[in-house]
């Protein structure tokens, strides 16, 4: 393939020596290192310790060993929250990223009104989680909301999408996909970083549009796809705000939107069972850690770095 040869040629001059250990690196890292030691590490370790205690925030924690973790085994609502969260991650992340990438690629091509489209598409992601926004989403997905009004035009009688236990979770996933603006912006920034010379070279070689996308655009933004994938999975596992505002903090109806962190929050602050909440947090960390590790391992086979 001529395009790949071209890419290889462009990359060829790069196999020069790299400097070995570089002490100035710690200078660049110093803000982060200070932050790690002073602000981040303490609370992380503390939460690990608390996960082995019975801690209600009002009294001193008391050591109970593995009891919190044992309790998880017979916790039905925990199982429900894990299921809800997995469904959300497995459906929400790929759908949102796929849409974000497709639109970003579409928007990256010079066209009229580009800036306008970009801004408008980002709108739903700006809204955040205020009370007004909570009511907004509930009205849209409610029995008399936008969705059902649109369905009504074509003669379908809708249901209360967020108030029916069978559809509530999927409504939140739809809402998540709707706010694809954030990964879209990151993809756009990534696409902007591809040097024009790569495209020019490909054009000289007579590559078609799909070939250009497949052999230049796609490989060059794999680091950005990878970034979005890793971070979106992490944040999807921690999804809180949307479920909280849509269900009024209950995870209802019928626990159908009981996201993991919602349950954790309810335990920690609602029931003042912070020891158990800390244990739940470390279970989550373990799960996210495994997913992230797999991601990093798999990245060797598909992520292309230009350095």
């Amino acid at each position: 393939m001529s395009v790949s040869t071209e890419l290889r040629r462009l990359r060829a001059g790069r196999a020069t020596t790299r400097p070995t250990s570089d002490r100035s690196a710690y200078g660049f890292l110093s803000p982060w290192l200070i932050g790690l030691v002073v602000i981040t590490a303490g609370p992380i370790v503390a939460s690990l310790v608390l996960s082995f205690t019975d801690y209600n925030l009002l009294q001193d924690p008391s050591w109970i060993g593995l009891d919190n973790f044992r309790r998880m085994l017979s916790d039905d609502r925990l199982r429900q929250s894990l299921w809800v969260t997995f469904v959300y991650v497995v459906l929400g992340v790929p759908l949102q990223l796929g849409l974000a990438l497709a639109i970003a690629v579409l928007l990256n091509r010079g066209m009229r009104g580009l800036a306008l489209y970009r801004s408008v598409l980002y709108l739903p992601s700006l809204l955040g989680g205020s009370v007004a926004v909570a009511i907004l989403w509930r009205q849209i997905f409610g029995t008399e909301g936008l969705i059902n009004q649109v369905l009504g035009f074509v003669g379908i009688e809708g249901i209360g999408w967020i108030s029916d236990p069978r559809t509530a979770l999927y409504s939140i996933i739809a809402l998540h996909v709707w706010t694809f603006g954030a990964p879209m912006v990151i993809f756009l920034a990534g696409l902007r970083q591809i040097p024009a010379s790569y495209y020019e070279a490909a054009v000289v070689d007579g590559a078609g549009r799909w070939q250009v996308f497949r052999h230049i655009t796609l490989p060059l933004i794999t680091p950005i796809i990878f970034f979005n994938l890793v971070l979106q999975i992490i944040s999807a596992f921690q999804a809180f705000t949307q479920a909280f505002i849509v269900s009024g903090g209950t995870g209802g109806p019928s626990d159908s939107t009981l996201f993991f962190t919602l349950y954790l929050y309810e335990k920690g602050f609602g029931e003042l069972d912070m020891g158990y909440a800390a244990a739940l947090a470390w279970l989550l960390l373990l799960i996210i850690g495994v997913f992230t590790a797999i991601n990093f391992y798999a990245a060797r086979f598909w992520v292309f770095y230009d350095d």
């Binding site: 609370p43 992380i44 939460s47 608390l50 890793v230 912070m274 800390a278 989550l284 850690g289």
Partner: peptide
């Protein structure tokens, strides 16, 4: 790796120790 791990814990658990700090 540590940097990545630091964002894997939900805020609601970290905030209490952090507040104490």
């Amino acid at each position: 790796a540590i940097m990545l791990v630091s964002i894997m814990l939900p805020l609601h658990v970290v905030i209490v120790p952090q507040y104490i700090l």
